[in-house]
């Protein structure tokens, strides 16, 4: 049993960290942004956190906070042109952003270590801490979803024009979403650096961008559990079927196509919807009984 835990602990840690990336992507989609910038935010957070931890006396907590602040700054910077643009422009600019972060981290070798990356980063993240962070993050996102910001996000996502005509400042909420997505993405990158001893530029490239979007699409874009379920699915499946591990990108590409066409709600939202439909199909009195409501 102890052997089993030791074998699968690294995978478990990675699932927690990649779930954080998926949440960063989830926030953007939830707010109706076509942002694919998560991998770029992760790169900023990873390098900032690792650099602060190694080169300064700030300690792990303050280094993490510093990394998150860098992510917020990057999100706000991206939102300058992108908060007032829609659709294709946001996708184009954020994919460009991710690629530029990769080439900048290769170029800025004195800080980032170039292609070799930063190594011998102290391991300050434990499995317990990672679980706690994911739990707190989900709670936070659930609270945001239920509050005024979440309702504004919903309105903007469903109809941009209607939201604007209802007096919702779409620019302001898009900026919030970029900042929040940047903060969470940077947190994920920082955790990756604090957990795995070393980071390199190619960790934060196109494959991470694809992973984050695939996890959210597969899991579901609406409920908070969606990104987590998508991450677990994408990380565990290649472990169960070893030949799939080499074909990871092919698998994710094919899943993106098939899920968007045939099951656009994803796993969690699809199940929630099915449950609601079944609920609605029952006769009114039975439903009232089940929910503990008085008879009509």
């Amino acid at each position: 049993m102890g052997n089993l835990v030791a074998t699968y602990r690294p995978l478990f840690d990675l699932i927690c960290i990649y779930a954080v990336f998926a949440f960063s992507q989830y926030v953007a989609l939830r707010a109706g942004l076509f942002s694919l910038a998560t991998a770029g935010f992760a790169s900023i957070g990873g390098y900032a956190g690792a650099y602060l931890l190694k080169e300064t006396a700030l300690g792990p907590v303050l280094s993490g906070v510093g990394a998150i602040l860098c992510g917020v700054a990057a999100g706000l910077f991206l939102s300058l042109p992108l908060a007032r643009l829609r659709g294709a422009f946001q996708a184009i600019a954020t994919i460009g952003f991710v690629q530029i972060m990769v080439s900048l981290s290769l170029f800025a070798a004195p800080i980032t270590g170039g292609a070799l990356g930063l190594n011998a980063i102290p391991k300050v993240a434990s499995s317990g801490l990672l679980v706690a962070i994911v739990a707190v993050l989900m709670l936070l996102l659930a609270v945001i979803n239920r509050g005024g910001i979440g309702r504004a996000f919903d309105a903007i996502r469903q109809d941009y024009t209607v939201a604007a005509s209802l007096g919702i400042s779409t620019n302001k909420y898009s900026r919030y979403a970029f900042a929040l997505s940047g903060a969470i993405g940077a947190l994920g990158g920082c955790l990756l650096a604090f957990d795995t001893y070393s980071i390199q530029p190619d960790l934060f490239g196109f494959p991470l961008l694809v992973f984050a979007i695939a996890a959210v699409i597969l899991g579901g874009r609406s409920s908070v559990a969606g990104p987590l379920v998508g991450t677990v699915f994408l990380m565990v499946l290649p472990e169960l079927a070893r030949p799939l591990a080499d074909e990871r990108l092919l698998l994710q590409g094919a899943l993106l196509i098939v899920v968007i066409i045939y099951w656009p709600r994803g796993i969690v939202d699809g199940l929630v919807r099915r449950w609601h439909d079944r609920d609605a199909a029952q006769d009114p009195q039975a439903r009232r009984d089940r929910h503990g409501l008085p008879a009509a």
């Binding site: 979007i213 699409i217 074909e247 092919l250 590409g253 094919a254 899943l255 968007i260 045939y262 656009p264």
Partner: peptide
């Protein structure tokens, strides 16, 4: 299936991966 603009961007990312693979 009445996919929206978001859906087309996502499937094209998927198709890009498959073709590259």
């Amino acid at each position: 299936r009445q996919g929206d603009e978001f859906g087309t961007i996502i499937v094209s990312i998927g198709a890009n991966l498959v073709l590259m693979h």
